[in-house]
Design a protein around this nucleic acid. Structure first.
Length: 467
RNA sequence: GCCAAGGUAGCUUAGCGGCGAAGCGGUGGACUGCAGAUCCAUUACACGGGAGUUCAAAUCUCUCCCUUGGCUCCA
């Protein structure tokens, strides 16, 4: 039974899909005008694990993400780079998907591009106009905030507050907070991209409407979960609620709202002006995807998380502790000394208990830090038992399987089977190991240590075992 | 100003009414030719301050202090 925190109610609730075990999940995707950054990575890794766990728990998840490929920022950037907006959008979309692959984020079931849903968008705007929720000016079509009394229910604001601190509102709008559904733009040339015909003249959609047009197309007017970064609560998600609930007349648009916390860099918000903007590409030049994922999952998805090299190093060390155990298990399983103990049944019980604890943590609003903590508890016990030769191969095999299972849910590969080295490399390495072993037998410590140090410089770590 | 999220050992985080926990780290020891890994022990002033509710508060309520974010570009 999964419990999840619903931003709408500000409480943890028992998760129940509208229809059986089928989950309709929408997460706001990126605006593809630049490289994705580590904040995106945090959000999408979080939802990756959430979805993995839901599937693992028996739900059939239909996971949709939009790709915002018609935004003003894209036009501006394309102008700067003297390229076509669509080409730019496709290029960065490709980079986004590639980054997700590198991070081990599974593809969602459907990536929906805004530009490929223009008819749906126009249709939805039309409904809003017909029902009197939207009005046309000479600049565009706007949603009339005052007609939708629930406006602000997600972010806990009221319309008066929103109107007070607005500077220089557009006087052509009825209310200062009314947002654009359709932006009128003149068609300059025939080959111009990102401009479409509509009943309100040529132009392009506003920012919020693509998501509701897309979700209505694939999910209908009501679905299970809508997710995204914390920063999208206002105004984006408020606008979505207004659009969808006003046009369909059905409430609520979505049952559960899930928002991921921010990733800061050394205590500061990531921004281009501060110069602390880190792209996923840059991240992966320095850290492995596993370390970053482990770092992300070491904090609960709703909590703020602080990125720094010191903390990444801590994560790396923690992850190594898990890897070391796997290696040790593999070693024990390969060795000839067979320990046969009759405490297997104890182990089966213990592992079942740990498994239950792990899944309890995950059930509790996807509490990955608590789940990881159960892995460490297990590791401590197992290390002790291995150290005391108090565990059978049979138990070790089961133990390994369970850690792999945890790894699968968290999207971390604990298999330690990377075996993609060239054969020649392996053979040369074996030769080197053989020579060094001979040196050690002759107690030529100086030279054997040198070999080990040099290998270490090449990122190959050699660790001697007791003979 | 309004809204929101936080303040738990040196660091990073769980816990959110009933023995304060995990990882990273520090120190000493065992094992090892040394190192690494691991084990044992140990170190930790750890629940921002104050008041209240309760048999019982890190946990609930109020209040104050501090940090961060949002307030129509944002994952």
């Amino acid at each position: 039974m999964i419990k999840l925190y619903n931003t709408m109610t500000r409480r943890k609730e028992i998760f129940e899909p509208i229809e059986g075990n089928r989950v309709k999940l929408f997460v706001c995707g990126p605006t593809v005008y630049d490289y994705s950054h580590i904040g995106h990575a945090r959000t999408y890794i979080s939802f990756d694990v959430i979805v993995r766990y839901m599937k693992y728990s028996g739900y059939s998840v239909f996971y949709v993400q939009n790709i915002t490929d018609l935004d003003d920022k894209i036009l501006k950037r394309a102008d700067e780079l003297e390229t076509s907006p669509l080409e730019l959008a496709r290029r960065y979309e490709e980079k986004y998907l590639h980054d997700m692959d590198l991070l081990g984020v599974e593809h969602v079931n459907l990536y929906a591009r805004a530009t490929e849903h223009i008819p749906e968008i126009i249709r939805q705007i039309g409904v809003l106009v017909d029902k009197g929720y939207a009005y046309e000016t000479d600049k565009g079509v706007y949603f009339d905030e005052s007609k939708f009394e629930d406006f602000g229910k997600l972010s806990n604001r009221n319309i008066e507050d929103l109107n007070v601190h607005r500077i220089g509102p557009d006087s052509s709008k009825r209310n200062p907070g009314d947002f654009a559904l359709w932006k009128k733009r003149e068609r300059i040339s025939e080959e111009q991209e990102m401009i479409w015909d509509s009943p309100w003249g040529t132009g392009r959609p506003g920012w919020h409407i693509e998501d509701t047009a897309i979700t209505e197309t694939y999910f209908g007017p009501q679905y299970d979960i809508h997710g995204g970064g914390l920063d999208l609560i206002f105004p984006h998600h408020e606008a979505e609620i207004a659009q969808m609930e006003a046009s369909s007349g059905k409430k609520p648009m979505v049952r559960y709202w899930m928002h991921t916390g921010f990733l800061n860099v050394k205590g500061e918000k990531m921004s281009k002006s501060l110069g602390n903007f880190i792209t996923i590409y840059e991240l992966l030049e320095e850290y492995s995807p596993e370390v970053f994922r482990f770092f992300v999952l070491s904090t609960h998805y709703r909590s703020p998380i602080d990125f720094s090299s010191e903390i990444l190093h801590q994560s790396s060390q923690g992850l190594n502790r898990i890897y070391n155990l796997i290696e040790k298990i593999n070693c024990e399983l390969d060795s000839d000394t067979s320990i046969s103990l009759d405490n297997d049944s104890d182990y089966i019980q213990k592992l079942a208990a740990v498994r239950e604890e792990f899944f309890e943590a995950m059930d509790n609003d996807f509490n990955t830090p608590a789940a990881i903590s159960t892995i460490f508890d297990l590791i401590r016990d197992v290390n002790r038992d291995i150290h005391e030769s108090n565990i059978s191969k049979n138990s070790l095999t089961k133990l390994k399987a369970i850690i792999m299972e945890f790894g699968y849910v968290l999207g971390l590969d604990f298999s330690m089977e990377h075996g993609n080295e060239e054969n020649l490399e392996i053979e040369l390495l074996d030769l080197l190991k053989y020579v060094r072993e001979k040196l050690r037998q002759n107690k030529n410590w100086e030279l054997s240590d040198q070999i080990r140090d040099k290998l270490n410089d090449l990122n190959i770590s050699l660790e001697d075992k007791k003979v």
